[in-house]
Amino acid sequence: PHAFLMAGWWVLPALLGGLLLPAVAEGLPHRRGGERQVERLTLVLVATALGLHAVMDGIALALPANHSHADAALHGHGSHGSGLSLALAVILHRIPVGFAIWWLIRPHFSRAFAITVIGYVALGTVMGAALTEPLLSLTSSEGMGIFQAFAAGALVHVLLHRPDFGPASGQHDSPASQPGLTAAVDTR
């Protein structure tokens, strides 16, 4: 609903795109044999999503200190401490993010690469917190509403995805035949 308020009806095709793109990406390597390309594209998508997510986390962490609206809430008006609650939520959800990166990327790549990904997310957080003011106008834009709808569609795909019973499972022999990164995207 919040994305709809920002971007209007454009959220519907974005939602459908987010829902269908992972399913299409899963089917591609079995139809065309282009597993490497799909894995590379998935890597770019994952990196973009992780980076954006980290930047938005950084913005959320900077809100209680920088944003006058959240500041007013902190000092006794309206919902008490909503800015800090958001910061606490961001910090708590970082724990599973760290586990996810380590358990999903570490088995498929080198230790150095997994550490680089962690560092990349950490850097994104610092960037988001440091550049909160210029970035904040972006987060309330139409494009961000469309992006959120796309991400929501991808999350619905994750929720509905069953490696053993899903529509994509008939196209390959076992869940183990999935490229690791496609599985990583699904889990995220």
Partner: peptide, 17 residues
Amino acid sequence: TAALVFISIAALLIGPL
């Protein structure tokens, strides 16, 4: 903000550690 960012990065490292 710096403290919150620091704690969030520390939380990120719990899994790997």
